[in-house]
Design a protein around this nucleic acid. Structure first.
Lengths: 289, 289
DNA sequence: TTTTTCATGTGAGAAATCCTCACATAGAGT
DNA sequence: ACTCTATGTGAGGATTTCTCACATGAAAAA
């Protein structure tokens, strides 16, 4: 009779990863634990089976022949388990519905989705970005929470929004006061953002832009700034890549807008949801520092 | 790239057992946990994969079709892991050397070894029962510890020995005092056992056996008693089966001998050793109550 | 030859997971 | 309607897993 009672499943998983990588610390990276944890699992498994699985130099052990064969068998078994997990999610089980602002999707999320789907190929992310997403059921909702608003229980804050005045580098004059007359680029969906920036920085009271151009969505506003059409106030996370690459300049630095980006996941234990939210937290780490 | 980071291995094992048995509580029995533990694993796994694995009546759920297919795939994978574990122990890795008294082996352990090897088919038990076992390296040593002796650190007490005067039922006269003249059966390896029994019970001072027969080993002494050759003082655990079946009688009951049976396992983490010691504890449970 | 770098091993204690216990709930059988 | 059997679950305990910090060892670099 089969009996799975004394199967050291955690140790088997750790050893399988170590055998596949040929290195304790690479396995630790994959499993998201310290090398010490993997080392202990391997040691425990060697006690359990009664034969050495690694041998040789203490700091760079090699698999024994038994360890190598054992590891291959375990890889095959765990691959089968992973395949079964992928199969059971067939249909729409692995479609992850994410709702967020269309600008956030276009300028931040979509450029990074490749990273997520590379790490988690079994999941398909389906974006919901129009205003109707408030009414449909999704797995994850990325919210922008205004100052003083209260977060729902299932929300986790991601980062505090920062704002920056951005402009194409070619438009930055030698003397900053000459910028005051540059065209001002505004966004219909966030008409007060210039005032918020002025309140937060104290700058710009003397700004007397020759013209003001209003665009329907932020990504258009930013695109206009990128094309030297004027200066815009933009959320930092939407343009941090352009700043880093030199396509935009932020001569006045960035300031806190008091808005909070948060992620809402009512069913966080679903693998797809948990994996996405964890990835999202890592991907937005730079905005929390 | 493979990534085993978020594989809920404990839940997968629990579900696999539940799917194979078709019943939560049977899986719990196999895994040695309560049904509540298995129930939670299954529930957690359903959250994880995002589809129901069991359905129907709350008190007798049936596998869904997805659950059935998933369970089969997991059984195949876990079978592969078990096979790999068996293979890696090939050679002498799964031979378990157990040292103990020859009488204990013949009258207690060997009759029960079938149970152990049925439960743990991958292990071969090799008995060492002669006096030379003190000098060889074994996995498990079953000791009889005299009164006031100290247990080594790696020892675990099993049970306190009990003694009983035993005799074939046909020899038990209507009047107990008539037994005093029955032949006394003694054992060369434990010459003081009659005196120990008399000291412990207060009985027998008036015993005037017509003859005394001495045998080289306890199993011979007990065999003689079974064959109506007289009365013997025997450790209870060696004859409890014969008492239960009516082949022997213990008209004076049993008394504590002050000897302690213990198990010594210097490498308790080896699977074979741990499994055997655990089994031994369970099998000797009746002598601890 | 000495120093530096890199990878693993491990003691101690914290964190997380797993489990038990006890009871509730639900459905089939009597 | 009652009993029996099996599962579900809150609460808290037990065990396992992990981190942290440092030690150790061996190869590479200076």
């Amino acid at each position: 009779m089969k009996n799975r009672k004394n199967l050291p499943v955690a140790a088997l998983r750790a050893f399988e990863a170590a055998a596949r990588h040929g290195q304790i610390s690479r396995a630790a990276d994959e499993l998201g634990v310290t090398h010490g944890a993997v080392s202990r699992h391997v040691s425990h498994l060697e006690d359990f089976v009664g034969v050495p699985l690694f041998e040789g130099a203490r700091n760079r052990p090699k698999l024994t022949e038994e360890g190598r064969v054992f590891g291959l068998a375990l890889t095959s078994a765990f691959d089968q388990i992973e395949d079964a997990l992928r199969s059971i999610g067939r249909g729409n089980g692995d479609i992850l519905d994410v709702a967020c602002l269309s600008t956030f999707a276009m300028r931040w999320l979509i450029p990074r989705l490749h990273e997520f789907t590379t790490i988690h190929p079994r999941f398909d992310v389906r974006l919901a970005t129009d205003n109707r997403h408030q009414q449909v059921s999704v797995d994850v909702r990325i919210l922008v929470v205004p100052p003083h608003a209260e977060l729902p229980k299932s929300c986790v804050p991601l980062f505090n929004e920062k704002l920056a005045l951005v402009v194409a580098p070619s438009l930055v004059p030698d003397r900053v006061e000459d910028m005051l007359t540059l065209p001002r680029l505004e966004t219909r969906t966030r008409p007060q953002v210039w005032q918020e920036w002025i309140d937060a920085t104290g700058e710009g009271d003397a700004f007397e832009p020759a013209t003001t151009r209003i665009f329907d969505h932020y990504h258009m506003t930013i695109e206009a700034a990128l094309n030297s059409l004027g200066m815009a106030i933009a959320p930092w996370h939407l343009i941090s890549g352009d700043i880093a690459s030199g396509r935009l300049a932020a001569p006045f630095g960035k300031v806190d807008s008091k808005y909070v980006y948060a992620v809402d996941a009512p069913r966080p234990n679903k693998a797809k949801t948990r994996d996405f939210v964890n990835w999202l937290k890592e991907a937005t780490q730079e905005f929390r520092d």
